[in-house]
Each structure stands twice: as C-alpha cells, then as structure tokens.
Nucleic acid binder design. Structure first.
Lengths: 242, 242
DNA sequence: CTTACGGCTTGATATATGTCAAAATTAACA
DNA sequence: TGTTAATTTTGACATATATCAAGCCGTAAG
C-alpha cells in the first residue's frame, strides 16, 4: 500500500469551498466562518489504496472528503471483513472513533483523494461557542446512525437483487446531489467490495447485476454503470419479504 | 396497544439515580448536576407493548431508560420490519431523530418500563456550558454508530448460530455490567423479535438455540436462558467465514 | 378449571446464495 | 508495448436458511 504524500498542512477555506453546502451547511457570519477555517487543514493526497486511518489508531480528528472516494470497513478477529460504507466528496468520516478515542474501522482510499482534517477537540470547543455548528455536528452524527440502521434493514431483510438495487439507487442519489448524472456513473469499487458491503459473495453480486441488466433496468460493463429505469429499480428494491 | 399512564412530570434527580454511572457518567459539580436534574423529567410507566415514539413523530427529546426493556425497529414501505436494537435500563434512545427532527424508528416497551425524558434543545444548551456533558453526548452518539456497525458485521458475515451466540454474549455482558448474572437471565423478546434483529426467521432462531443447547453451550427453556460455557459461546461466534 | 390463543419446536421440502472451477476480460506494471 | 496479475462472468453443484405444516406448551381470559 502507498503512503500518503507529505503533509503540506495547507490551510483550507471552508468559506470558499464549493462543497460547503454538502459538508457544513451552517449559517455563520464571516467572522465565525473564519474561525472554522482556522481549525481545518487540508491534508496531502491519499493515493488509491492508501489508508486514512486504521482500526485502533488514536482518534484525533474527523475528515471531510474534498475529492475522491473512500471505503470504511471493520474486521472480525478471524479476518472476516465488512465494508461499512463508501464515502464521497462532501461527506465526513471518522465519527466511530469518538466513543473510545480510537478508530474502530479502517478507511481506505478507493481512488486518489484529498481530505480536510478537522481536529475534534477544537471542533468541540468551537461548537460550544457557535450553536449552529453544534447543531450541525449533532445532525451529522445522527445521520450516520440513520444510515447504518438502513443498512441493517437491507442486510437483515432484503434479497440479493433488492440489495443491489438499493445500493445503486443510493449511489445514484448521492451523485445527483453533487451535480453528476444520477443515471450514468462509474463504480469505484470491485464486485468483492460491493459484496462485502451488501453481505454477498462477489459471484452473487455479479449475477445480480447481470439479472438487473437482463431485466433492462441497468446497463453495466465493468465499472461503468447506467441506470435505464429508476422507477423500475425502486420497484425492484421493495419486491417481497424474504 | 396500551397508552402510557398519564404523565406525572415527576422531577428526577440524576444526582441520586443509581443508574448514573451507566447513563451519564460525567464529572459535574453539585451545582452543575442540579442544572442537569432540572432538564430531566420522569415520564409515566410505559406498559408492555406501548409505544414510546413512532417513526415520523417529531423529535424533541432523548429518553433514558430507568427500568424495563425496549426494542427499536424500522419498517420498510412494504411492511418488512427490522429490529434495530433492544435497550435496557441505563441506555439512551431516540438519537436517530436528531438528523431530521423526526424519529426514523419505533420504540416499543417489551415489558412495563419507565423512562426519563431529556429535551434535546435544552440538553444542547446545557452541553455548550458544560464541556464534560458535551463530550459525553458525543460519546453516546458515537457509541451508537459503533454498535450499529457491529450489527452490520453480524448481519453481513455471520451464520445463524454465530449470530445467536453474538447476541447472547452481548446480552450477557450488558446484564453483567448492571450487576445481574451474566450466565442466567430471561429473554424479554420473542423468537420472532430475535429473528427480526438477527436477520433470521423465527424457526431458524429456534433451531439455532436448540443446536447451542445440544452442544452444551446453553440451556434454554422458553424465555429463560442459561449460558453454560461463555468461552465456548465466544468460540462459536468466530467460527468460520460464510 | 377449562378453553383459546400466541408462542415455540420440530420435520419435510424448497430455494437463494455460497462454493468451486474455468475462461474471458481488463487493469497494472515492467 | 508486452506480460502478468487482478477482476469479472458464468456454469455446476453444495448448503444454509426459508417456507410450509403439524403438534405442543404455557399463559391469559372466561
């Protein structure tokens, strides 16, 4: 695995960042925004395959993804792994580490990526002074809880094809929010990684994709994916109980 | 379903609550503790089967369980349900509601239970003034994230018997922390509810319990459960990949 | 005390997904 | 650019869990 490029500790300006609406949509005055800018440093590029943090690492900061794509995963004692999420630009990761001052999962770059580091102690300090920031932090934490519980629903009650449909629709929606096409995008992860996330083997993922293609709901060729019928995929997601 | 008994709005004293170590283990002065007490009101008894909050309800408060047992569950559009957790005395629920100002799951009492209501706006206000309280709130939110991600691991990568073992060990540990026997306790939920939580059908839960009993790891008769060999159960949990 | 109902167990069978294997395709690297 | 390794697809078969069904048990209500 690669090492991240040397840390240039570039100062970042949230105030001028085009991801602000996604990442920290908080109403702050110019002065308050400057104080937020002051916390946050841009870290060097994380190359494809490199590790932002590892399970067990001391927790010190949250990370906002500026560009690129990450996955987070946890590992059993016996080596089983479970991808817990795929994160894209504008999303914040690392919140698992707050509870025990140590990260409980690994975060791996799936393509060359840049992140902003947000030292958590200083974020707590500032959020005591800026109620809107405090509120936003709580929302982010809660949103992660809701997200995880929806994955529990997926893993606990959906069949393979439904899981795939839900997964693709989720990606679609997140691309749409970022101004990309909701119906045509590149998968940044392998079938194996999709399977790890969805609780399926890679062969099952491949077969389910082929079936969705057979049903004319998607076109998939390697990593490039096209959704032919969003309503159809939505219908497929909620087909029948297991 | 029953209605909760009328809200007597009894003031509660965290300062004298024997669950304080579990619920709000924060170092506060007497004056600070009094301010915390001031927020929190004891709500009436929730009878077995009654609902603390429902998906879609406006989010206004977190709830600390004083006595009893709850389950939380989310429902698909098509009626599929997924239990997202079982909560016991000293645990705090309702955090899913913060992100969108509405609850995203139902919380149902599995036995007659009492809760303390913690109005969230006021908790935010106070936590801006009391850094240790702020830190604790963040830890609670993060702990829920870690808990959920571990359930994702369970649902995504364990087989039925392993899921059961993990589930029973988790209960065991939580009873132990509360001063109850870690090896002998009552299940508060039906096989169906266990199955909903573990992503299994009730028949599979029943069979897996019988198998664990066959292996002399547990004794189970209806809702009463005895763990005969904790290390054995732990071993069973991490047997082999799926 | 009796009856009724929901919850639980167990068996037989069906089915979805896993496992193993081979070939095709693509990506990575020298 | 050529070579190798990784990823993906597809098939044949194995297996874990779901489904369906019947009977039992325990609790609650009459």
């Amino acid at each position: 695995m690669h090492k991240p490029a040397p840390n240039n500790s570039l100062k970042t300006a949230c105030s001028t960042c085009n991801l602000r609406k996604l990442c920290l949509p908080v109403n702050l005055s110019n002065i308050e925004m400057a104080r937020l800018d002051d916390l946050i440093t841009r870290k060097g590029v994380y190359r494809h395959g490199s590790i932002l943090y590892r399970s067990g690492d001391k927790f010190q900061a949250l990370y906002a993804i500026r560009t690129g794509f990450f996955k987070t995963q946890i590992l059993n004692e016996d080596g089983r792994e479970q991808a817990t999420g795929f994160q894209m630009a504008g999303e914040i990761i690392g919140m698992d580490g707050i509870s025990s001052d140590a990260h409980t999962c690994d975060a791996v770059a799936l393509e060359d990526s840049e992140v902003c580091e947000i030292p958590f102690n200083r974020l707590e300090d500032l959020s005591r002074e800026l109620p809107p920031l405090q509120r936003h932090l709580h929302r982010i934490l809660s949103r992660e809880i809701v997200r995880d519980q929806n994955i529990m629903l997926l893993l606990g009650s959906m069949r393979a094809e439904e899981r795939l449909a839900a997964f693709l629709l989720n990606l679609s929606q997140r691309f749409a929010v970022r101004g990309y096409s909701p119906t045509s995008f590149q998968l940044r992860m392998t079938r194996q990684e999709i399977g790890s996330y969805l609780g399926l083997k890679l062969e099952t993922v491949s077969r389910a994709l082929s079936q969705l293609q057979e049903s004319k709901l998607i076109n998939v060729r390697n990593r490039s994916l096209e959704i032919l019928c969003l309503p159809g995929l939505q219908a497929c997601m909620g087909k029948r109980a297991r």
